[in-house]
């Protein structure tokens, strides 16, 4: 028994995922479903492994246990060619943008198009300008990544992630470093990519209210487990103490704010190390 239900509306299904960096356990049996054409939010405290989850789905890390299906095929059983074909159908927005620093903004967005399509340069130009327009940076096309602010880099990276019109886009913290205006634009953009083009979206974010307002479904992960999942209303109304603590942003509660450490007094009073 694999535990995968073969429902066609699941684009990604993660079952009993186990993963660790060295001996450090990050995931200890996690199930996540990403439904086609929906916006799925993944929330959780910093350092729980949200970025790691996206990298596992993208086939960059191999889990120690469990399976990840993308459109019915096991991501980690593909040969390289098939995996690369799969990745062309996934866009990923990296947390820090990860733009190629020796290319201009324009060339960064054009990069996947030039690599994977045989489109004429004039057509590529039109596509790139349209994608840049969508993130409000058409005027910045000739700048180099080092001339951009953090928020701008992330928006360029978003334009790059959607350049090939993928089936799914994974957004890692798209809202950090955005002012309220660009934040609003980005939220509407993610939502509209979803409604008008049917792109499946996975949004990792700490901005609970914002992400819940555009999500169809949400997961809260912490301590290697899924704490809760449901529609935004279900999440908001959750009785779970863990979820309440996360939503209300209190440092003390079932979810520890601190990385594992001995008590502060003991550390301060103890011998210098």
């Amino acid at each position: 028994m694999t535990g995968h239900e073969q429902t066609p509306d699941l684009l990604v299904s993660v079952r009993d995922l186990r993963f660790g960096y060295g001996s450090r356990m990050i995931y200890d049996g996690v199930d996540v479903d990403i439904r086609r054409g929906k916006v799925t939010a993944i929330m959780g405290p910093s350092g729980t492994g949200k970025t790691t989850l996206l990298r596992i789905i993208g086939g960059q890390w191999r889990p120690t246990g469990g399976t990840v299906l993308f459109d019915g095929a096991d991501v980690h059983q593909q040969n390289r060619k098939a995996l690369y074909r799969m990745r062309q159908r996934m866009g990923m927005l990296f947390q820090n943008g990860a733009l190629l620093t020796d290319l201009t903004v324009f060339d960064n967005v054009a990069y996947p198009l030039r690599e994977h399509t045989k489109l004429a340069e004039a057509l590529i130009r039109d596509i790139v300008l349209m994608k840049l327009e969508a993130v409000g940076l058409r005027g910045a096309r000739d700048l180099y990544p080092e001339e951009l602010s953090g928020g701008m880099s992330r928006r360029v990276a978003l334009a790059r992630a959607i350049a090939l019109d993928p089936d799914m886009v994974m957004y890692d913290e798209p809202f950090t470093g955005q002012d309220p205006i660009s934040m609003g634009v980005l939220m509407r953009l993610i939502r509209s990519l979803n409604t008008s083009l049917g792109i499946t979206s996975v949004v990792v974010s700490h901005d609970v209210e914002e992400v819940l307002s555009i999500a169809d479904y949400a997961y809260i992960v912490a301590g290697g487990k899924v704490l809760d999942h449901g529609t935004p209303d279900q999440i908001r109304g959750s009785e779970s103490a863990l979820v309440r603590q996360f939503l209300e942003g209190r440092p003390d509660g079932p979810v520890p704010f601190h990385y594992k450490a001995p008590p502060l007094e003991q550390d301060l009073m103890g011998d210098a190390r």
Partner: peptide
């Protein structure tokens, strides 16, 4: 530096080796 700034990972995720 390309490794440290995730540029190599980004290429991999864009299906570029």
């Amino acid at each position: 530096l390309m490794r440290a700034t995730d540029q190599l990972s980004a290429m991999e995720m864009m299906a570029v080796d």
